[in-house]
Amino acid sequence: MTRNLAPARRRRPFTQVDVFTDEPYRGNPLAVVADAEDLSTEQMQQFANWTNLSETTFLLPPTHPDADYRVRIFTAHEEFPFAGHPTLGSAHVWLEGGGVPKREGVLVQECAAGLVRVKRDGGQLAFAAPPLTRSGPVAEADLARIAAGLRVPRQALLDASWLVNGPGWIGVLLASAAQVLAIRPDLAAMGDLKVGVIGPHDADAEADFEVRTFIPGDAAAEDPVTGSFNAGAAQWLIGSRRAPSSYTAAQGTMLGRAGRVRVEAVDGDIWVGGRSTTCISGDVLL
């Protein structure tokens, strides 16, 4: 009788990187496993659950001729087609591991959402914001739930839009960064809505906007720094002329982080970037 045995575990390169910061342990951490081609979806999901981070990624050879590498992105409970800080952190690890892009200065990541361009600008990486798969007005019933969840009057929500580019974000604009920082959310009131809140800083502040993102039902509840939301928010705010063509967003302040997201619109593309810092490197038995 023949038995189908799972491949034996082996040592694989492992890196934990802090994204959207040049200060170790002040950004958004990401676990990255390289040489992951022979791992099953179930093995990847189990390991991502074990790391207990917001996301864990796995680097694989590309299947598209234009891509430099392929990545699969997992939360503790599900796989994402795209996410922002995993894109930058994975690109950082791929380059540190000796990866050489097919095109000078730009690498192409293959993920479930398609091909994503990532450019190098000095010590910073930036990805081209992918197209929104859903945008536009938010139903009044959802806005009422969001206002209740943020514990603010409904009229405090100056505008809102769906900003779906993988995760199903709803973006909400408040009048000021101070209002964003003052939020003490009631996540249960939001139900299953993923909500990002943004408000402008005063002109003399280091950052132009303050951002907070809330994920009801998630163990972390508030995300330290969120590339996917900032990408959608940039498309929304720059497109509606609420934001200039380049700006800096601060995120993670209430969590003791110092996340900084750099946004720049160039020739029809919106680039979302920041610095990444390797904090742990070695191998993992998987």
Results as ranks from 00 to 15, higher is better:
residue 57 T to W: 03
residue 45 Q to M: 02
residue 19 V to R: 00
residue 253 T to P: 12
residue 141 A to H: 09
residue 73 I to A: 03
residue 13 P to Q: 05
residue 161 S to D: 14
residue 31 A to E: 05
residue 213 T to L: 12
residue 22 D to V: 00
residue 20 F to A: 05
residue 67 A to T: 05
residue 220 A to Y: 15
residue 89 G to I: 01
residue 88 L to T: 01
residue 223 D to C: 10
residue 272 V to E: 15
residue 103 R to S: 11
residue 260 R to V: 09
residue 179 Q to H: 13
residue 20 F to G: 03
residue 194 K to R: 14
residue 283 D to N: 08
residue 80 F to K: 01
residue 47 F to Y: 06
residue 16 Q to A: 07
residue 268 G to Q: 05
residue 177 A to H: 06
residue 215 I to C: 15
residue 5 L to T: 15
residue 7 P to R: 01
residue 279 C to A: 13
residue 105 G to P: 00
residue 152 V to M: 04
residue 258 A to I: 09
residue 163 L to Y: 03
residue 186 D to R: 08
residue 126 A to Q: 05
residue 69 Y to R: 03
residue 270 I to G: 06
residue 19 V to C: 05
residue 28 N to R: 03
residue 137 P to Y: 05
residue 69 Y to M: 05
residue 94 W to F: 12
residue 259 G to C: 11
residue 284 V to M: 06
residue 127 F to D: 06
residue 135 S to A: 11
residue 265 A to W: 06
residue 29 P to R: 05
residue 169 W to D: 07
residue 217 G to H: 10
residue 235 Q to G: 13
residue 164 V to R: 04
residue 66 D to Y: 12
residue 45 Q to W: 02
residue 228 S to V: 07
residue 282 G to C: 00
residue 188 A to Q: 08
residue 195 V to M: 12
residue 7 P to Q: 07
residue 174 L to V: 06
residue 241 R to F: 12
residue 236 W to G: 10
residue 85 H to R: 03
residue 91 A to M: 01
residue 180 V to G: 15
residue 129 A to Q: 07
residue 216 P to Q: 04
residue 254 M to S: 14
residue 112 A to V: 06
residue 85 H to T: 03
residue 220 A to F: 13
residue 255 L to S: 08
residue 260 R to M: 14
residue 112 A to C: 07
residue 17 V to M: 07
residue 34 A to R: 06
residue 136 G to L: 02
residue 168 G to Q: 10
residue 151 R to G: 10
residue 249 A to Y: 04
residue 22 D to Y: 01
residue 3 R to T: 11
residue 120 R to P: 07
residue 130 P to H: 04
residue 141 A to R: 09
residue 219 A to V: 10
residue 137 P to D: 13
residue 284 V to L: 05
residue 85 H to N: 01
residue 120 R to K: 11
residue 74 F to R: 01
residue 100 V to R: 12
residue 144 A to V: 15
residue 282 G to R: 03
residue 173 L to V: 14
residue 35 D to H: 03
residue 213 T to F: 09
residue 263 V to N: 08
residue 13 P to L: 02
residue 264 E to D: 15
residue 47 F to I: 00
residue 272 V to F: 13
residue 79 E to H: 02
residue 36 A to C: 05
residue 80 F to G: 05
residue 197 V to Y: 07
residue 12 R to T: 04
residue 79 E to S: 00
residue 203 A to S: 15
residue 273 G to K: 09
residue 151 R to L: 12
residue 283 D to C: 04
residue 242 R to K: 15
residue 141 A to L: 08
residue 91 A to S: 08
residue 230 N to R: 13
residue 107 L to E: 07
residue 132 L to D: 08
residue 272 V to I: 15
residue 228 S to M: 07
residue 193 L to F: 09
residue 30 L to E: 03
residue 129 A to L: 06
residue 211 V to N: 09
residue 149 G to D: 02
residue 133 T to N: 12
residue 57 T to K: 01
residue 90 S to D: 04
residue 21 T to W: 02
residue 224 P to K: 11
residue 37 E to R: 08
residue 73 I to M: 02
residue 286 L to P: 04
residue 4 N to H: 15
residue 128 A to F: 07
residue 61 P to G: 09
residue 47 F to V: 02
residue 75 T to F: 02
